[in-house]
Design a binder for these strands. Structure first.
Lengths: 168, 168
DNA sequence: GATATAAAGTTATAATATAACAATTATTGC
DNA sequence: GCAATAATTGTTATATTATAACTTTATATC
C-alpha cells in the first residue's frame, strides 16, 4: 500500500519492495543498477522525508565509496532519469518515487513540521493541468507540483496538546 | 491584459502598471516600498523571464546601491512576503506576480527554450488541489506549481523552419 | 529632538551543484 | 580470451545560490 501520513507501515518491507521494483525496472531497460546507485537509492528510501544530497555523503563514505559531491549527484541524476527518485525543488532535496513506471501527474504534499512528504496521483489534477496547457498551447515536459503545509498529524498536535492542558 | 506567450504587448506600460499596483498595495498595508525595493521590483519586471538574484546585482550596483547579495535577497524577501514577486524554485529564479492581491491557486508555465514564464490562474486546478489536500487531511500553506516545457512559439519554430527549407 | 524601530551596508561564510580530467570497470566485437 | 570501446567512478577544483552576524544609516514615534 502506498505510504500516507497516517499509515504506520512496515518500513523495512517498504524499502525492500522499492529496491525490488527499481531492480526490475533497470533490468527491463538494460540500465546498470550499480552498487553505488543502489546504495543511494536505499539511503533515499530510509525515510519518507526528502533528503539533501549532502546528507547522504556520510553514509556513502561509511560504505567505503568516494564521498565527494559528484558521487551522490551522479547517482541521483541516474535515479531521476529512471524515474526512481524525484527532486523536490522547493527543498533542494530528493525523495523516492512512490509509483515508478507510471507517468501520471503527481504532486507532493510536504509537511513543514515533521518534514514528511507524500506523493499523490490525481486524475483531476492531471485534467486541470491538461486544460491549462491546452488553453495556452503549451507542451508540458515535466512538472513540479509541491504543496507545503501541515500534515494531519502535525495539524492535530497543537489541538491535542491544548486539550491535554485543559484536563489538568 | 495579462501577459501570455502570444501577446505582443506594450511592455513599458506593463511595468508602469505593475509598479503602480505594487505601490498601492504597499501604501494600503503600511509597508515601505523603498527605493531599492522599487528598483529590484522594476528589474524583475524588465522581462517575463524568471531572473536569478545574482543577475540583478550589476544593475543594483549601477544604480549606486550596495550590491552584495543580502541587498537583493532582502528586497526579494520583502517582495515575496507582499506577494509581489514569486520564486520559481525549479529555476532558483524570481518573477513578478501577475495578479498581486488575489489569493487563487496559480501555476507557472515555463518555456525551457525562450525562458519566458506565464502565470496562470485556474479554478479547476484550485479545486483539484483542494480535493487532494482534503482527502489527505492536509492543510496547505503555500504551493509551488511549475510546468516546464515548450511555449506555443518555440513549439512551432522547428516546424516553421522545416517548412521553410522545403520551399527552397 | 531623543528614542525606538526598520532598513540598508558590509564582511564572511554556508549550502547546493557542476566542470573537467584521470582512473577504473564493464561491455562489445573479434 | 583479449584488445578496443564505452560507461562508470574517483578526484580536484570551482561555480552558483543563499544566509548569518554585526554595523551603520534612515525613518517613525513619542
Amino acid at each position: 500500500m502506498a505510504f500516507t501520513f497516517q499509515s504506520k507501515h512496515d518500513h523495512g518491507r517498504c524499502i525492500r519492495q522499492a529496491l525490488a521494483t527499481a531492480d526490475n525496472i533497470c533490468v527491463e531497460r538494460g540500465q546498470r543498477f550499480t552498487k553505488i546507485r543502489k546504495l543511494v537509492f536505499g539511503l533515499i528510501w530510509q525515510s519518507h522525508k526528502p533528503l539533501g544530497a549532502y546528507e547522504l555523503l556520510p553514509a556513502i563514505k561509511k560504505a567505503g565509496f568516494n564521498s565527494a559531491p559528484p558521487t551522490v549527484y551522479r547517482a541521483l541524476d541516474f535515479l531521476q532519469e529512471q524515474g526512481l527518485v524525484h527532486r523536490i525543488s522547493s527543498l533542494n532535496a530528493f525523495i523516492g518515487c512512490a509509483h515508478p513506471g507510471h507517468q501520471c501527474s503527481s504532486c507532493f504534499l510536504i509537511c513543514d513540521q515533521c518534514e514528511l512528504a507524500v506523493e499523490v496521483e490525481s486524475d483531476r489534477l492531471e485534467e486541470a493541468i491538461n486544460d491549462i496547457t491546452q488553453d495556452m498551447g503549451f507542451v508540458a515536459e515535466r512538472e513540479h507540483i509541491e504543496i507545503v503545509g501541515k500534515c494531519p498529524n502535525c495539524k492535530l498536535k497543537p489541538i491535542l496538546e491544548a486539550a491535554g492542558k485543559n484536563e489538568q
